[in-house]
């Protein structure tokens, strides 16, 4: 087996994952794209493990670890998304603008909508 084949497939998958992370609006879709990227890495790891005939099977063991960590990451990520959804009533990434500085002119008078909803969410037990 030529090493180029799995490497190229992995590179393509990774790029697709990048596109998904950058282009998708729904946070769950972004999470899926992250999984795509992780899998691309996994494929690489396995391929190189096979090519290098590692006695310790470092590549494949690391792949297993990555899979486990990915599972944990998905669990945590989904928990965060749920908390976000409960607080903001949305999971659209481009509507979460709490990172922006307030626009000039409406500085203290009207805070950013994200901050407002966050404040409201904290009031509700």
């Amino acid at each position: 087996m030529h090493v180029v084949y799995p490497a190229v497939v992995s590179a393509l998958l990774f790029s697709i994952g990048v596109y998904g992370v950058l282009a998708r609006r729904n946070t769950i879709l972004v999470l899926m794209s992250v999984e795509l990227m992780l899998n691309a890495v996994n494929l690489n790891l396995v391929a190189f493990d096979v090519w290098l005939r590692d006695r310790l099977h470092g590549g494949q063991v690391l792949t297993l670890f990555v899979i486990v960590i990915a599972a944990a990451e998905v669990g945590l990520g989904l928990a965060i998304i749920l908390a976000l959804y409960r607080n903001r009533r949305t999971v659209d990434l481009d509507r979460l603008r709490a990172l922006a500085e307030p626009a000039p002119g409406d500085g203290a008078a009207s805070p950013a909508p994200g901050r407002e909803t966050a404040a409201r969410a904290e009031e509700t037990p």
């Binding site: 990048v18 992370v21 950058l22 282009a23 481009d94 603008r97 990172l99 922006a100 500085e101 950013a112």
Partner: peptide, 17 residues
């Protein structure tokens, strides 16, 4: 410059990548 500082995390990540 602050036009880019719009709070959209995706844009930031795009720039980073």
């Amino acid at each position: 410059v602050r036009l880019t500082q719009n709070g959209n995390a995706q844009l930031y990540v795009t720039g980073l990548l």
